[in-house]
Write a protein that binds this DNA or RNA. Sequence first.
RNA 1: GGGUCCGUGGCGCAGCACGGAUAGCGCGUCAGCCUUCUAAGCUGAACGUCAUGGGUUCAAAUCCCAUCGGACCCGCCA
Length: 649
Amino acid sequence: MIAQNPFDLFRQECQTVLTVAIKKTLPEITPPAINLKRTANLDFGQLATSLCFELAKKLNQKPILVAKNLVAAVNNSTFEFIEKVEPAGAGYINFHVNFPKFNALILESIKTLNKNYGLVKTDQPKSIIVEHTSVNPLHPIHIGQARNPMLGDALSRILQCRGHNVSRHYYIDDVGRQSSVVAYGYSKLGRPKPNEKADLFVGKIYTVTSCIVEISRLKKGKASSSNTSSADDLAKINKEIDEWTSIAVELKEKYPILFETLMEKIGEDADPEEEINSLNRSYEDGSPDAKNLIREVSDLCLEGFRQTMKRVGVTYDSWDWESDFVWSTQVSEVMAKLKASQFVFSEKGVLEFDAEKVIKTFDLKSKLGLSDNHEISPLTLVRADGTTLYTTRDIAYTIWKFKNAQKVINIIGMEQSLAQLQLKIALYAMGYCENADNLVHFAYNLVTLPGYKMSSRRGHYITFDEVLDEAIQRAYSEVSKRSPSLSDEEKHDIANFVGLGAVRYALLDVDPGKPVVFTWERVLNFETNSAPYVQYTHARACSILRKVEHKPEYLNLELLTERLERELILALAEFPDIFVEATEYLKPNIIADYINTLADKFNTFYNAYPVIKAKTPELSDARIALTKAIQIVLKNALTLIGVFAPEKM
RNA sequence: GGGUCCGUGGCGCAGCACGGAUAGCGCGUCAGCCUUCUAAGCUGAACGUCAUGGGUUCAAAUCCCAUCGGACCCGCCA
């Protein structure tokens, strides 16, 4: 017998048995919902309920007495996967699984379903768009941003395995002012061909241009306001100038030629700030020159991104240009619709969206999980010069996404929580209520460097490529140390998947809501609780399986009676539940936790008992079957989070 | 000032949605294990007022309130 979720058969059986017993002994009582939980410990059985504590109150009896009475009423003649039911502790009911039968159920299910084991399909498949990465095409993807594609890719993988139709979208934010900044610098340089990785090249131009323009803007502001402004304001401007000046010194040292050239060329313009704003306006208007220029520099940068993402096995189904939504009528349609609603007001010639009014009108506060005193601030939709703002364009983009999907999951940093909420509220205001309900902001916290916050504008960042390079390099020296006899080609091969796996795992295994402080030791961990540890464990299992020469004709899985073996069987049985939970609650990190736990248990088992040279050939065969099942599950789980499962390392 | 998220051994984390039996794990520290299937491994020891104070409950790391501490947001940036 096999099952998609074999543990569920046991759970269902416990549920039924208990329900019948309650009806029989307590017909007059409407029982509370039965909540069966996994136990902390094998001795407490495999599932337990604390139901009797609640019943005890209604019945005015001691909980353990209620438990005893219920257990006495259980009909054990019909047991299939239950071995026994026991009252325990102060009033628990513990259900013990029948391991002889259960072993076979689990191991045969895994063997038969193989690479599909654990990946339980939903009965409500949906089309889902996962938007992730979406790094602005201005500079290389840095380690802080790399958490995004790791989460987005893992989520996409698990949702797809769940049976959903997943489409991965990259939103190219080419419309904001910052795109005009880099394009301005790039054109001042005469649109040079990159002499290095394109995103790195673009990043330098962006940082230097941005710095030069910023200083010029601040100085101009200071000059024009020195008579009118307060001393405080002036001090503030001076402080900013000092800050940018020190950045300029840094950049001048790092890229002397680039800095000098840009300084000179930008100096030719009387008002660089206005040049940039004008370029921004032209781009939104769709002027061919502006389009040509900005798309060219953006494409350069994106080419670099594609190379980086290819290294880590992240792919996209759609690259969506923000500008396309501006040039088409989609953004203006959104504006027209919002303007016609009662939720937009004009202040100093600027259009504002009154999110709070929408919430009050449609009574959304509790639906959105907002506390009573949580007021949502208004959102500016359009600048005085008529150009749109990021969130406004995102509204049009989101509506477009829902033309192609039933559900939209945006992987976006938690610093954008307010904007994402305003966006959702705008959908309600426009009548797209169902879409709004199906819009999910998957928020994650920042990755910071100890010491200072990463800032792409200031050129303070460690690129994702650098981290990957360093990871692979460190992995290479580990391999050389641990397996000196391997060929250089093999070493490089291993170093590659070990390094990449380590980085992926490190960015994935922390709760997305918590910040990660980046340190090399943390990210490039090759010991327990890391991808290399799990990869090693997988390779170890493969190594045992390679050494098995015969195929067992008759398997007696009842022989797996050691406590560790039972714990392993249970851990294997748990995988479908973990997968479903990870999918339904969007928690890819629990997959990472799970494989580590499973690997731990297998390594303990490995050290405690011989597999091939077990006491009897029958026991050996049973343990080989167990090892095979573990290898399959480790591989399935690693694949879910995008980590390679090697056969040797 | 208002809001959101977070606070668990020296350090880094899990557990909290759905309250239940002795709070798990890694690093680091200490003591051990390779003539036996991969030592990127394993075994043992030490280390905890689960930020603090109340409340709800038979039962609180988990739920509620307050306080303190940290991060982030409140822009005609994205």
